[in-house]
């Protein structure tokens, strides 16, 4: 491109051979590549600055006292800005959840069995992220008086998705089960989420 530009205005001194042009093109290529690398390297800090900052990442665990939750009810706690449902299941709800065949589920991917979705020895406690996997609404069903859908778990008022008592989607349009946050039992009445 440099050659053609020079040629158009007639500044072509004698002795300017193709070897020269090749060398110049190579140099221009190196410079262009260097400039591209520079722009790319400079772009990353801008993009990364939009990722969660250190203070956001640091607020990653929440302690919850679960003793006051009556059987058949759930509470909502906030973890990383998201609602977490902590549900105290009744014996009937546990049995219902355990009796569902994985093959009947809309989303059979693990964790799909009830045993996979709770902590062993704490079967009455279900902890899920309370965000409908369809378009991000918060399903109803924490109080026994709320609409809970046909499967006794949660009912999303936005588009009618229904979840069972293990937080698995049983009726669309939501494609996935309610995800599980990382959590652990510190004592029998206290869990640490995150």
């Amino acid at each position: 491109m440099a050659d053609s530009a020079a040629a158009t205005i007639g500044h072509h001194p004698p002795g300017h051979g193709p070897a020269d042009g090749t060398k110049r093109d190579f140099l221009a290529l190196v410079a262009g590549a260097g400039g591209a690398v520079l722009v790319g390297a400079l772009a990353w800090p801008f993009i990364d600055s939009m990722n969660p900052s250190k203070d956001v990442l640091a607020l990653s665990s929440t302690d919850v006292d679960i003793s006051p939750i009556p059987a058949g009810s759930a509470i909502t706690v906030v973890w990383r800005g998201k609602p977490i449902f902590v549900r105290h299941r009744t014996a009937k709800e546990i049995t219902e959840a355990q009796n569902v065949k994985v093959a009947d589920l809309i989303d059979p991917s693990a964790p799909a069995t009830d045993a996979e979705r709770i902590k062993a020895g704490h079967e009455q406690w279900l902890v899920v992220i309370g965000i409908c996997t369809h378009l991000g609404c918060i399903p109803l069903g924490n109080k026994p008086t709320d609409p809970r859908g046909d499967y006794g778990g949660w009912f999303c008022p936005c588009h009618g998705s229904q979840y069972d008592t293990a937080g698995r989607v049983r009726h669309g349009p939501a494609p996935l089960n309610l995800p599980l946050p990382p959590y652990a039992f510190e004592t029998d009445t206290k869990i640490k989420i995150g």
Binding site: A2, A6, H11, H12, P13, H16, D20, K23, R24, L27, A28, V30, A31, G34, G35, L38
Partner: peptide
């Protein structure tokens, strides 16, 4: 390094100009 390369490019580009 980039300054060096760019300067070399500039020299080559201008080589045929008085």
């Amino acid at each position: 390094l980039l300054t060096g390369v760019t300067y070399a490019v500039k020299r080559r580009v201008w080589a045929d100009v008085d």
